[in-house]
Amino acid sequence: LQLFIKTLTGKTSTVEMEPSDTIENLKAKIQDKEGIPPDQQRLIFAGKQLEDGRTLSDYNIQKESTLHLVL
């Protein structure tokens, strides 16, 4: 599924993920695209901070969801 990652600067990146992927996997993919180390990334979806060990489906993240990346 395609996700949009929006940064505080207003920049939006697109990443392709599976519902079974963990937040950790997602942060690794963001690191590949943006060069931001996972330990500096905080991802927010629906007002919640996402935890590394959980999966996208745990948070009911659907295709074309927008996640907010806070550093």
Rank of each mutant, 00 (worst) to 15 (best):
Q2F: 12
I5V: 07
S65I: 05
K33P: 02
P37Y: 05
R42D: 05
K6A: 07
I30H: 00
L56Q: 00
T22E: 02
D39L: 09
K11D: 08
G53V: 06
A28F: 12
T22C: 03
K33V: 12
K27T: 01
D52W: 03
Q31F: 15
G35Y: 03
E34N: 10
L43T: 00
E51R: 08
L50E: 00
E64V: 06
I44N: 05
K11Y: 13
I30N: 01
F45D: 00
V15M: 09
L26I: 07
E18F: 14
K11V: 10
V15C: 03
K27H: 02
S13H: 15
T12R: 07
T12N: 06
S13Q: 11
L71W: 11
L1Y: 11
L1V: 09
S20D: 12
K48G: 06
T66I: 14
R54K: 13
N60P: 04
Q31N: 09
E16T: 13
L56Y: 01
I5Y: 08
T12V: 14
V15S: 01
Q2S: 10
S13L: 15
S65F: 07
L50S: 01
E18M: 14
Q41N: 02
P37R: 08
T7A: 07
L1A: 04
I5L: 05
P19W: 10
T66Y: 07
L50Y: 00
T66A: 05
M17K: 01
N60L: 07
E18K: 14
S20T: 12
I44T: 08
L43K: 01
L67G: 02
S13A: 11
D32W: 11
P37E: 06
L26T: 02
Q40N: 08
D58M: 05
E18Y: 14
S13I: 15
K33L: 15
F4E: 04
D32C: 07
Q49A: 11
P19A: 11
R54G: 06
G10Q: 03
H68T: 14
S57M: 12
T55V: 07
M17S: 05
V15Y: 15
K63N: 15
K33R: 11
D52I: 06
I44R: 05
S57R: 12
N60R: 07
Q2I: 15
Q2H: 12
F45E: 00
I23C: 01
P19M: 09
K48T: 12
L69I: 06
S13P: 02
G10L: 03
L56K: 01
Q40W: 10
K6E: 07
Q41H: 03
K6C: 10
D39H: 13
K6F: 07
L50C: 02
L1T: 04
G10V: 02
L43E: 00
F4Y: 13
K6D: 04
G10N: 05
L69G: 00
N25P: 01
I5W: 03
K27R: 06
D39N: 12
Y59R: 00
L71G: 07
V15E: 02
M17A: 13
E51Y: 07
D32E: 14
L67E: 01
S13M: 15
K27P: 01
E16P: 05
E24S: 13
Q31C: 10
T22A: 04
D21H: 05
L8E: 13
T7N: 09
P19Y: 10
S65N: 08
G53D: 10
I36Q: 03
T55N: 05
L69N: 00
L8Y: 13
T9A: 12
P37G: 05
Q40H: 13
L3S: 01
P37A: 08
I44L: 12
L8Q: 12
L67K: 01
G10M: 03
L8V: 12
Q31A: 14
I61N: 02
L56S: 01
L69D: 00
G10H: 05
K63Q: 14
K11Q: 10
L1D: 03
K6V: 14
T66E: 07
G10E: 03
A28E: 09
K29Y: 08
T12H: 06
L26N: 00
T66K: 04
N60E: 07
E64W: 15
K33S: 12
T12F: 11
R42V: 14
S57W: 08
N60A: 08
K48Y: 09
N25K: 15
E18P: 04
T9Q: 11
D58E: 11
D32S: 12
P38A: 15
T9V: 07
H68W: 15
P37C: 06
D39R: 12
S57I: 09
L50V: 04
D52G: 06
G53C: 06
I36Y: 13
L50K: 00
I5D: 01
I36A: 04
K29P: 00
T14K: 10
G53L: 08
P37F: 05
P37N: 06
P37K: 07
T22H: 04
K48N: 09
L69H: 01
N60S: 09
E51S: 07
T12W: 12
L3G: 01
V70E: 10
T9D: 14
R54M: 12
L3P: 00
T22S: 08
E34S: 12
E18H: 14
L71C: 06
